[in-house]
Design a protein around this nucleic acid. Sequence first.
DNA 1: CGACGTGTTGATCTCTCTCAATTAGAGTGG
DNA 2: CCACTCTAATTGAGAGAGATCAACACGTCG
Lengths: 245, 245
Amino acid sequence: MSEVPCNQCPLRRTSVFLDGTVEDVKFIQSLKQRELRLRADEILFFEGQKDARLFTLLEGWAFRFKTLSNGRRQILNFLFPGDLVGVQQEIVAESDHGIATLTNAVFCVFQRNALWKLYQHSPETGFNITWLTAREQSMVDDGLLSVGQRNAQERFAALLIRLFRRAGALQSDNGAAGVKFPITQQHMADALGMSLVHTNKTLRKLEQLGFHRIEDGHLHLLNVKALAHLGDLFGDGRVPQRPLF
Amino acid sequence: MSEVPCNQCPLRRTSVFLDGTVEDVKFIQSLKQRELRLRADEILFFEGQKDARLFTLLEGWAFRFKTLSNGRRQILNFLFPGDLVGVQQEIVAESDHGIATLTNAVFCVFQRNALWKLYQHSPETGFNITWLTAREQSMVDDGLLSVGQRNAQERFAALLIRLFRRAGALQSDNGAAGVKFPITQQHMADALGMSLVHTNKTLRKLEQLGFHRIEDGHLHLLNVKALAHLGDLFGDGRVPQRPLF
DNA sequence: CGACGTGTTGATCTCTCTCAATTAGAGTGG
DNA sequence: CCACTCTAATTGAGAGAGATCAACACGTCG
């Protein structure tokens, strides 16, 4: 149960704080208040909660979500070790989304106003935080593209590949033997804006086509090329550059 | 055609850079390279473009979008005067979304690496940029909630209210006599992940119900309460606080 | 052993899409 | 001033992807 010193923080692996000096790390360490351990299916903070603060996810999987009053839930993005949690909350003082765990998880809890202190500490640190934020933004953008414009199969293709890549990046074998996959079909349904039943049927179909396999809590991609094609992850609809200035 | 000095920049009205000192503003001015004027329906930069830089939108409406190779387009968010454009691009060197105008628009073009220089200039500035970024994030989150979990009428209720509020905030009468609304049904369809035909029918229905009116390029909300209820914008599904620590 | 969570599958149902056609207004050229 | 064109809005009809409803299988756990 010993706490993780900041110089071993997974954040340092994901190219953020990567360039931090020893002194930087010491400073960050000084803002770290304690660790918070949650079990699977627990809530780190709710939507609308006012006292949420800044965290990093040290171990385990989690997700950001929003719900409607009729109970429907949208998963906004999945969170992996190294992800920063609660930047919005530190800024607006009230959260407009919640955070829940998928597995047992360890969060590093920063002291109040840590975000501001990090900015004050060095421009690099502030810039790195923005980097993480922009990355998160980009993933939500892609989620919106999926839910808005892709059909069921295409959504799964895009989701499976993204999750596989993110999870694989954290494993030493890079996912060669499959990646851990603690996500239920209900979670995928909530992330893709689909019903549970249709989620099941679509997933089944892709499995029959030999595109992937989910087994024993692990995800295997058996035909990445086909999945990438299905999810439109090559061309991406990008138009040739035409600089205007 | 004279250029706008930074101390009159609309960014200052939207509570960002609000607390900037005279010296801060001078510094920002020094990073401003020039202004770029586009007409309606032009592209500021494309998806995948590598040389995009940092802008602010000074005048007019615009939007962020992504497209699939089959041509389907998802509008990620609408942009209003004061919005920062291109933070992602400055960080990752390649854009994963495009920006297009809805009206004639004026962008303020910053010099290359402006973002980094802003961070270096002062922690406040960096923090303000993050504030804007978090706000943008929050809007995309909400868009994803809509497209994933709300039905057609609910999506429009949420969208119309959001656009009305944002546009109204920029008008002196706060939208009392309706707000300018340069958005076609196709744009709304692309923002909400719906077909053009169903967009038209749903909009028509809400108009018949007396909820709103779009006329002569202006949007009027005739029954904000009903719209807010329909869009679930009160309760928001927020669960009572339960601090875990 | 029964309760529960998760996955699976079949049978309807419906919301939304696609196809098709029409109207209205703005802009253009003769 | 009038055809011609183009874009945006509109409306009807049929089709379909995905939702909802209903069971059942299977493993875990108290």
